[in-house]
Design a protein around this nucleic acid. Structure first.
Length: 189
DNA sequence: GCCAACGTTGGC
DNA sequence: GCCAACGTTGGC
């Protein structure tokens, strides 16, 4: 299941030389497009207000220990991508704001920290198992857009979040979905 | 607190 | 490789 890490650090300012096979079509695609994601956090652990209180309103998204989510953190999520910040496992599950990716995938340092609850003794520093990205607060919504509200929207039916049994804590979102939710947030409930 | 759904582990 | 047991997620 594990693939070894591969170089993938293309940013808007990177020079992409297509004569080398290191620049794949996927890398080119990433360099030219913004992608959209949703990240879940339990507000009792880390809320959007906690994010707002961080230095530079930026945090590293540590502790993801699911391989599917890991693959996205390591391979797919790029600087400039936009993120829906979702409060889960709480009274009113809701999208509560947006963030922007400020640093793309790098090894989660907590996996090597014996004192951390995210310590993983099976992870080899030469071939780290877990990755994370940094995100910066973009906007805290004027009001939460609740899960119940998302379910009512026909246009959002396809969202990963709304699929039965969906538990991924990092998940892709379509541009249309992202914009729909932003628009909902700007209108009274 | 309940429980459905999912992921991981480990015996065979 | 199968699958039962267990742990976790997360809405309700």
């Amino acid at each position: 299941m594990d693939r070894s890490p591969k170089p993938h650090k293309f940013t808007a300012t990177s020079t992409i030389d297509c004569r080398h096979d290191s620049a794949t079509a996927k890398d080119l695609f990433h360099a030219m497009t913004i992608n959209y994601w949703l990240m879940k956090s339990e507000p009792t652990t880390f809320s959007i207000d906690d994010l707002a209180d961080q230095p530079d309103q930026t945090t590293c998204w540590e502790g993801v220990r699911n391989y599917q989510a890991r693959n996205m953190l390591r391979d797919d999520i790029q600087v400039g991508d936009r993120v829906l910040f979702y409060h889960s496992a709480c009274k009113v599950p809701a999208v509560v704001g947006t963030a922007v990716v400020s640093k793309s995938g790098y090894p989660d340092p907590f996996q090597f920290d014996r004192k951390s609850k995210y310590f993983d003794e099976k992870s080899d520093p030469e071939n780290p198992r877990w990755y994370l990205v940094d995100i910066k607060l973009e906007k805290k919504f004027d009001r939460p857009v609740t899960l119940a509200e998302l379910r009512e929207r026909a246009g959002l039916k396809g969202m990963v979040l709304l699929q039965k049994g969906s538990r991924l804590s990092v998940q892709p979102v379509k541009k249309k979905e992202f914009e729909t939710i932003e628009k909902l947030a700007s209108k009274p409930a």
